[in-house]
Design a protein around this nucleic acid. Structure first.
Lengths: 209, 209
DNA sequence: ACCAGAATGAGCCGCAGGCCCTATTGCTGT
DNA sequence: ACAGCAATAGGGCCTGCGGCTCATTCTGGT
């Protein structure tokens, strides 16, 4: 269901941070990480993700170097510090399907992952913005996409710790009956049975605040 | 309660990624981020965190440059790409209280934040490992720290979507009665009243799997 | 003009969940 | 030897929650 990705970067803070951030996006799942090119090659022998994110500058074996050795590997997005045209050219030559600066906002990265997973390319700097826009929306599972705005509000409140029917009703300025009706509707759409599971789903789907 | 921090780094992926990762640590709260030195100075005029994480290389105004201008600012940890002694010296001269490589593991960063928040310094490379070890443990609030291992197990199951007493009992190989007793004990310790709130707390405290 | 769906509200009912109390066993630290 | 606590289990009580059905109003799309 979710797009499975592997992240390769030698800086643990970026690697782990990005890993958690992307994992919290409902249609993206980080299945493994690697600290350098060789580790990436090893990891790709064990798991088969849909997309790989690769830093250029890494010890032992660079991202570009790893890509050259990886024939028939999953589509790669090169993530780099300084986005110079020279590097973009090298990345394309090494077989990368996408190219993005580390200064790019997270929603852009998510969109890039979806685009590449869908078979598109993000190499031409001029066309990138347009391609990204076409993949802005997260691919939610059926039920989650069917939630109405009021249902999302209620879910967000639940996920913030407001659990009783009375409190929910007060916060939303509606009757307790309506709260229960909304909840029943949420349960049906998300295929769950109670508030505890609703909180789990709300957080998994990133429905907060 | 939690240690309030601000993150300054020009690479959005590291900034946002780290922000989410650190925010998920129960005793750390990211209150703001900045994309360069000048933004950092502006931000510090609006919020007063306990610790600031500062990258060295940033456009417009570098981390070191910003620190020099910030007299009486919160204690800073310099986070850098290449941890050379030369930079470490400059950071110390600019008034930084800590110095850490971006290749450092996240638990080390969390420990460094706790150490600096507690008034310690992490400038001497030789003493760093030792200081970090003294701050490995997250400062949980009273209730959370008082949870027993069995209670944590139960909470983790709850947070994974197992919500009914029956299912919980089956998974833990205990009677439904005992499940209810454990839950009651959890409610008391965390000052909550039901399973939905328990899930919220479990995830906030990072009790998963 | 019409229909589908969102948002609101209600009644009814059965059971699970939360609350209070008690009890036994086994481990740990003093 | 003893106190304290974790982990286990049971009984009773009562309310809130979830399931089922129905009704009204307003909006947006065809």
């Amino acid at each position: 269901m979710a797009i499975r990705i592997v992240i390769a970067d030698d800086h643990t803070m970026l690697r782990e941070g990005l890993s958690q951030a992307l994992d919290s996006i409902p249609d993206i799942e980080v299945v493994a990480t690697a600290a350098d090119g060789r580790e990436l090659i090893t990891v790709l022998g064990e798991v088969t993700p849909d997309v790989i994110l690769v830093d250029i500058e890494m010890p032992r074996l660079s991202g570009i170097g790893a890509l050259r050795k990886l024939e028939g590997a999953p589509p790669a997005i090169i993530v780099t510090m300084h986005s110079e045209d020279e590097q973009r050219r090298k990345a394309a030559a090494a077989g990368a399907k996408g190219f993005l600066s580390k200064s790019a906002p997270l929603p852009d990265l998510a969109a890039a992952i979806r685009a590449v997973a869908a078979g598109e390319e993000l190499l031409d700097a001029a066309a990138t913005a347009d391609t990204l826009d076409r993949h802005r929306q997260p691919i939610l599972d059926e039920g989650a996409a069917a939630l109405t705005s009021r249902e999302r509000e209620l879910l967000a409140l639940l996920a913030s710790g407001v659990s009783s029917t009375e409190d929910l009703a007060d916060r939303l300025f509606i009757s307790q009956k309506t709260v229960k009706n909304h909840l029943a509707s949420i349960y049906e759409k998300l295929a769950i049975t109670d508030r505890a599971q609703a909180v789990v789903e709300a957080i998994r789907l990133g429905i907060h605040r």
